[in-house]
Amino acid sequence: VQTVGQWLESIGLPQYENHLMANGFDNVQFMGSNVMEDQDLLEIGILNSGHRQRILQAIQLL
Rank of each mutant, 00 (worst) to 15 (best):
Q2R: 11
Q2P: 12
Q2L: 11
T3K: 08
T3D: 07
T3G: 08
T3W: 05
T3N: 07
V4M: 08
V4G: 03
V4I: 15
V4N: 00
V4S: 04
V4D: 00
V4F: 05
G5Y: 08
G5W: 04
Q6I: 05
Q6A: 13
Q6Y: 05
Q6S: 12
Q6W: 04
Q6C: 08
Q6L: 05
W7F: 14
W7N: 05
W7V: 05
W7S: 02
L8N: 02
L8D: 00
L8Q: 00
L8H: 00
L8R: 01
L8Y: 00
L8C: 02
L8K: 00
E9H: 13
E9F: 07
E9A: 13
E9R: 09
E9Y: 07
S10W: 05
S10C: 07
S10F: 06
I11A: 02
I11E: 00
I11L: 10
I11Q: 00
I11T: 04
I11D: 03
I11R: 02
I11C: 04
I11N: 02
G12A: 04
G12Q: 05
L13H: 00
L13A: 01
L13I: 04
L13G: 01
L13Q: 01
P14N: 06
P14Y: 03
Q15Y: 03
Q15H: 04
Q15R: 02
Q15T: 00
Q15F: 04
Y16A: 03
Y16M: 02
Y16C: 03
Y16G: 02
Y16W: 03
Y16L: 01
Y16E: 01
Y16P: 00
E17A: 10
E17F: 06
E17Y: 08
E17L: 08
E17P: 01
E17V: 11
E17S: 07
N18H: 13
N18F: 11
N18P: 11
N18Y: 12
H19C: 13
H19E: 10
H19T: 15
H19L: 14
H19D: 10
H19V: 15
L20I: 04
L20M: 14
L20N: 01
M21G: 05
M21E: 07
A22E: 12
A22M: 12
A22F: 07
A22W: 06
A22Q: 13
N23A: 15
N23V: 10
G24Y: 05
G24Q: 04
G24K: 06
F25Y: 13
F25R: 05
F25G: 03
F25E: 03
F25I: 12
D26G: 09
D26K: 13
D26A: 10
D26V: 12
D26I: 08
N27R: 09
N27S: 15
N27A: 08
N27G: 07
N27T: 14
V28D: 06
V28M: 14
V28W: 09
V28G: 06
V28A: 06
V28R: 05
Q29C: 10
Q29S: 12
Q29T: 12
Q29H: 12
F30T: 15
F30A: 15
F30K: 15
F30P: 07
F30M: 15
F30H: 15
M31F: 14
M31V: 12
M31R: 06
M31H: 06
G32I: 13
G32E: 13
G32T: 15
S33Q: 14
S33A: 14
S33M: 11
S33G: 11
S33H: 12
S33W: 08
S33V: 12
N34S: 15
N34I: 15
N34C: 15
N34M: 12
V35H: 12
V35S: 13
M36W: 11
M36V: 15
M36F: 11
M36K: 14
E37C: 13
E37L: 11
D38S: 07
D38V: 03
Q39I: 10
Q39W: 07
Q39N: 13
Q39C: 10
Q39T: 11
D40S: 09
D40Q: 10
L41K: 01
L41D: 02
L41Q: 01
L41A: 00
L41F: 05
L41M: 04
L41R: 00
L42H: 07
L42G: 01
L42D: 04
L42A: 11
L42W: 08
L42V: 13
L42C: 09
E43D: 14
E43W: 05
E43F: 05
E43T: 10
E43M: 10
E43L: 08
I44F: 09
I44H: 00
I44C: 11
I44A: 10
I44D: 02
I44M: 14
I44Y: 07
G45K: 02
G45Y: 03
G45F: 00
G45P: 01
I46C: 03
I46P: 02
I46A: 00
I46F: 00
I46S: 04
I46D: 00
I46G: 03
I46Q: 02
L47Y: 11
L47G: 11
L47R: 12
L47P: 06
L47E: 15
L47F: 12
N48I: 05
N48T: 05
N48C: 07
N48P: 05
N48M: 04
S49K: 14
S49F: 09
S49T: 11
S49I: 10
S49W: 09
S49L: 10
S49D: 10
S49Q: 11
S49A: 14
S49C: 11
G50E: 03
G50S: 06
G50A: 04
H51V: 03
H51E: 05
H51R: 02
H51D: 07
H51W: 01
H51L: 01
R52I: 00
R52P: 02
R52C: 02
R52N: 02
R52M: 00
R52T: 00
Q53S: 11
Q53P: 00
Q53A: 13
Q53T: 13
Q53C: 09
Q53G: 09
R54T: 09
R54F: 03
R54P: 01
R54I: 09
R54N: 05
R54Q: 09
R54G: 03
I55S: 01
I55L: 11
I55Y: 03
I55C: 00
L56W: 07
Q57V: 06
Q57K: 13
Q57C: 08
A58L: 02
A58T: 04
A58I: 03
A58H: 08
I59H: 14
I59C: 12
I59F: 12
I59L: 14
Q60I: 11
Q60W: 06
Q60A: 15
L61M: 11
L61K: 14
L61G: 12
L61N: 07
L61A: 15
L61E: 15
